[in-house]
Design a binder for these strands. Structure first.
Length: 262
DNA sequence: ATGCCGGGCGAAGCCCGA
């Protein structure tokens, strides 16, 4: 079971790249972020033609998340619980009905939080606290769960090309990293770091200043696994190929492979 | 040097992202 997460930076602008990636990388489940369109305008037909079903949460111009799956999606949750006034489209969750290999997945677009001296940063921290609470409640099910997405969190200095330069950024501040660790400490495993010790592996490179060509990047897209999913973790990696294409997103996919259950 | 790209919106220039 291959599960991938990718911040596509507009589903419309990226559709050709996404369709090519679905063919070549062939994830069973794809968690997309920053689709930037309302659900009615999501290109379902083109994606369904490639054998995927879609769960979509959208809004005009900003944010937007989706789950694409080769298996039926059930029990879709279209918002992160904890604040009914929050109308930003940043969370969608579903049960993937793959029989004995079934699992719960979420596609997460965590707020950026910059600039830190505005209301954006407390919104980010509050959103992380809501995610922690929901992630905690999900564990009670003892299901295999993959919470994947653009977390806008650099977990550690080895995950950014210039740690000193990013020290006070909303993606790397100690408060941000602390909240991220609190989620991990519930019992979730960050899949990439569980299998890779090397530094300098990134999932985002700015469009500007030739950041990709000079490998000045950030690792901010993550797959968090419940114990029942982590026990089946076979492989996890970052696929840099889509970032090198024409009309690329500034993020590139991160994927993991889960073994069949015993 | 936080906007040098890139996308949305909407038809020029501003908002937003990380």
């Amino acid at each position: 079971m291959k599960i991938a997460t990718w911040n596509v930076n507009s589903i419309k602008a990226r559709l050709a790249n996404i369709l090519e990636w679905l063919e070549t990388a062939a994830p069973d489940v794809a968690l997309l972020q920053e689709t930037k369109t309302v659900a009615e305008n999501f290109p379902r037909l083109e994606i369904e033609e490639r054998g995927y079903t879609c769960a979509v949460v959208g809004q005009k111009s900003y944010n937007g998340v989706a789950i694409l799956s080769k298996y039926p999606l059930e029990d879709v949750v279209e918002a992160l619980p904890g604040d009914s006034d929050d109308e930003q489209a940043r969370y969608v969750e579903a049960w993937v009905d793959a029989g004995d290999a079934g699992l719960r997945v979420a596609s997460i677009y965590l707020p950026n939080g910059n600039p830190v001296d505005t209301e954006k940063y407390p919104y980010k921290l509050a959103w992380m606290e809501r995610l922690r609470a929901h992630a905690a409640s999900l564990l009670a099910s003892e299901e295999p769960i993959v919470l994947g997405g653009d977390y806008n969190v650099i977990p550690a200095p080895e995950d950014v090309y210039d740690p000193k330069g990013w020290a006070d950024d909303a993606l790397f501040r100690l408060d941000t990293r602390k909240r991220f660790r609190e989620i991990l400490n519930l019992g979730y495993t960050e899949a990439f770091r569980a299998l890779h010790a090397e530094s300098g592996r990134y999932s985002f490179w700015d469009y500007q200043r030739r950041a990709f060509e000079s490998d000045r990047g950030l690792r901010i897209d993550h797959l968090l696994l419940s114990p029942q999913a982590a026990d089946r973790l076979n492989a996890c990696d970052i696929d840099t190929v889509p970032r090198g294409k024409q009309k690329a997103s500034d993020h590139t996919p991160v994927w993991c492979d889960l073994a069949e259950p015993p």
